[in-house]
Simulated assay, not measured.
Amino acid sequence: MADHLPAALGPLLRAARERLAAAGIADPALDSRLIVEHFSGTTRTQAIAEPGQQVASAALSVIETALRRRVAGEPVHRILGYREFYGLRLSLSPETLEPRPDTETLVDAVLPFARATAERLGECRLLDLGTGTGAIALALLHSIPQATATGVDISLDALATAVGNARNLGLGGRFKALHSNWFEKVSGSYHVIASNPPYISSRDIGNLQDEVRDFDPHQALDGGADGLDPYRVIAAEAAGFLETQGKVAVEIGHTQKNEVTGIFAAAGYRLAGAHSDLGGNDRVLVFER
């Protein structure tokens, strides 16, 4: 009940943190702060400067519900409905993967090439396969004013979310959503083809962390029997849509570097770059013809 929570901001934050800590949540201080600030419309500065500030009872009841969802294991950003990625706020929906910091590695990996292309040609065309929230495409568009992007997804819900994110970020005029199963409906040619495809093997889905298994869409996780099916499709078909000097960049599972490199090599590509994530794991491979 909402009346269990104190109405003053400082005690409210403390009570929320204690409740999440008692439930064994990994980062109770951060998650409680995100929930309280988001649903009470307050800031960290206010919590420090005016801990006695009263929070309206309507907000308390929403915070109560949010804390219960978090205690039940729902990821905090699903509860908030958005996630920060590359400094951009992206709305989530049930059929979008929650963008992870590891995927920022992919943006970092292609940004210098995409920027140089745009400076040389006055444009850079990007194709983001399995765009989800639009995270990869929108981070690149935000960084490169001359770039345009097509975000492809098999989920109409994900595409609607990506279009909304593009609009909210003022990038709607340079982002096009395309409902397609991989390259099926794609046309034109691109300087960069990027993808964070599903790469978990079907049998391993059940072993994922609860927060991923129970709340991320399985369609965005399941890469087939060995987790490599999407890479086979991309390697086999990308050449028909790639500009002469273009690059293909893919996120991978941290044990998949050799297999994915082999799949692309067999299709006539060479490895142009391999990038590690913040944890030092193999995370992104960049290929060229």
Rank of each mutant, 00 (worst) to 15 (best):
A116C: 00
T117S: 03
T117K: 12
T117C: 06
E119V: 08
E123P: 00
C124W: 01
R125N: 08
R125E: 08
R125V: 01
L126D: 02
L127Q: 05
D128E: 06
D128Y: 09
D128Q: 03
G130A: 04
G130R: 10
T131E: 09
G132H: 04
G132S: 04
T133M: 10
T133V: 02
T133N: 07
G134R: 10
G134D: 09
A135C: 11
A137W: 03
A137R: 03
L138N: 06
L141D: 02
L141T: 00
L141R: 07
H142K: 13
H142D: 14
S143G: 00
S143W: 03
S143M: 04
I144E: 12
P145Y: 03
P145A: 11
P145E: 11
Q146N: 00
A147F: 05
T148L: 01
A149L: 04
A149M: 06
T150Y: 11
T150A: 09
T150N: 10
G151P: 09
G151K: 12
V152R: 10
I154V: 15
I154T: 13
S155T: 02
L156E: 15
L156Q: 15
D157C: 14
D157Y: 06
A158V: 07
L159F: 05
L159K: 10
T161A: 14
A162P: 09
V163Q: 15
G164W: 00
N165E: 12
A166G: 08
A166Y: 06
R167L: 07
R167T: 09
R167Y: 01
N168D: 14
L169T: 02
L171M: 10
G173E: 15
G173W: 13
R174W: 02
R174I: 02
K176W: 00
K176T: 14
A177D: 05
A177M: 05
A177G: 14
H179M: 01
H179P: 10
S180V: 06
S180Y: 12
W182P: 05
W182R: 01
F183N: 09
E184D: 15
E184M: 09
V186T: 09
S189Q: 14
S189C: 10
S189R: 14
S189H: 13
Y190K: 09
V192K: 00
V192I: 14
A194Y: 04
S195D: 07
N196A: 03
N196W: 11
P197A: 07
P198N: 12
P198M: 12
P198R: 13
Y199G: 02
Y199I: 09
I200Y: 05
I200A: 04
S201W: 05
S202D: 02
S202A: 08
R203M: 03
R203V: 14
R203W: 06
D204Q: 13
